[in-house]
């Protein structure tokens, strides 16, 4: 399943834009835009999404290249964290206060 909004009917295809605002951060979805190809998508993304910041990294991806999880099968697809407290450090009370644990 692709992201919403991509359509083969358009003259310029849709691209999703991800921007990393600075070192140490991760890329965050900023929005989308239209461009005829990857080179222009990148340049347009720079103009549209980073006008006020420097030193960013930009990823552009054709919208139809993105595979998304199906929200309808949320229940089955995403494992429920409930009942799995043993995945959290807090569960282990005997270790409380022991140095370096």
């Amino acid at each position: 399943m692709t992201t919403s909004g991509a359509s083969p009917r358009e003259t310029w295809p849709l691209w999703e834009v991800f921007v990393r605002a600075g070192r140490g951060l991760s890329h965050v979805h900023a929005g989308s835009l239209h461009a005829p190809d990857a080179d222009f998508a990148l340049r347009n993304a720079r103009d549209v999404y980073t006008r006020r910041s420097e030193g960013t990294s930009i990823w552009v991806v054709p919208a139809d290249a993105i595979t998304t999880s199906d929200p309808d099968s949320k229940g089955a697809f995403f494992e429920s964290p409930a009942g799995k407290n043993y995945r959290h450090a807090r569960y282990y009370t005997a270790s409380e206060g022991v140095p370096h644990l």
């Binding site: 919403s4 909004g5 359509s7 358009e10 003259t11 849709l14 929005g31 989308s32 835009l33 549209v48």
Partner: peptide
């Protein structure tokens, strides 16, 4: 900026199944 804002909003609308064209 206004052109940019139009673009952000068209982009949001596209997620609902309508195209920019």
């Amino acid at each position: 900026d206004e052109a940019g804002h139009g673009l952000y909003l068209y982009s949001a609308a596209q997620t609902l199944g309508i195209t920019r064209d």
